[in-house]
Design a binder for these strands. Structure first.
Lengths: 146, 146
DNA sequence: CTTTACGTAACATCAATAGTTACATAAAGA
DNA sequence: TCTTTATGTAACTATTGATGTTACGTAAAG
């Protein structure tokens, strides 16, 4: 078959935030956006923007000036993947979109309803898993001493 | 909480194709891109583009000139949601993206691996369901006589 | 030979994250 | 106080693939 893969744009903020907070945790002191940017291979402003979401949600604090940077407020054992997922924006998880749902066409409704059913089931599965996984357990995956 | 839903762009070609072929089936004759465009509330060119994928995959034919248009080749009972999904492009189903997977950072690897695990599980579930659902059964959802 | 309809190239549009520059502000330290 | 270090944020541009649109070419029917 021709290679016609779905290449819809992705949102990597979830992955990025997780990466960042585990680094902060390991360093055990405030980490600047500059340093996080290098670790995540991105711009300090992007880091601030993304970490700002975490701060709003109460998982980190930020301190200005010398020796400033980002620090964790909550222990990683009390944060789940689901918590971070919510921070980033609990929109649709899927690249599959339904057509105009305000239609009156019964065929379209049947199609949308079937697709939506399957997606809801998968979403439920994913979010259930997300709730079971703490960030601490994520960190343990790469290092035994914790 | 602030309303910060994930608004990643969606691909509605799957939904659109399903909608189209059920209409063709019901009309029981060749349907032009013009007419399908009106049914799907979109442009005839978009219809041709999308239906062209289906044609390539051997599910429909197209006839030019008077009384031309699109017709089904296979019965809907022999086409599953999974078949159409593959036509549209079996890329990633999810809006969640992993960060650069060619990294050496063990933290990033652990994060990506966890997210990937959950997504793979959900993907497996979805594709399994897709394989179970024939387009005929979809059509039955809105009308008993088939 | 005219009309109809697909086939396709070649754009412009859209929408959200990601990337960048620039500057304001606050805190620490000399 | 003055300088340095950081965050905070506004105001862009870049990116990317589906979607929308215009314009033609081509084939088939009548």
């Amino acid at each position: 078959m021709t290679n016609r893969a779905n290449k819809m744009r992705k949102d990597s903020r979830l992955s990025r935030i997780l990466h960042a907070i585990i680094h902060i945790h390991c360093l055990e002191k405030a980490v600047t956006s500059e340093k996080l940017g290098k670790m995540l291979q991105t711009n300090p402003v992007v880091v601030r923007r993304t970490m700002g979401l975490l701060k709003e949600a109460g998982y980190v604090t930020s301190v200005k000036g010398h020796n400033g940077g980002w620090s964790l407020i909550k222990p990683l054992s009390e944060i789940t993947l689901f918590d971070i997922y919510k921070v980033v924006g609990e929109g649709s998880l899927f690249t599959i979109g339904l057509t105009d749902e305000h239609t009156n066409c019964p065929i379209e409704k049947a199609v949308n309803s079937s697709l939506d059913g399957v997606m809801s089931e998968a979403e439920y599965l994913m979010l259930t898993r997300f709730k079971e996984i703490t960030i601490e357990s994520l960190a343990k995956n790469f290092k035994g001493d914790f």
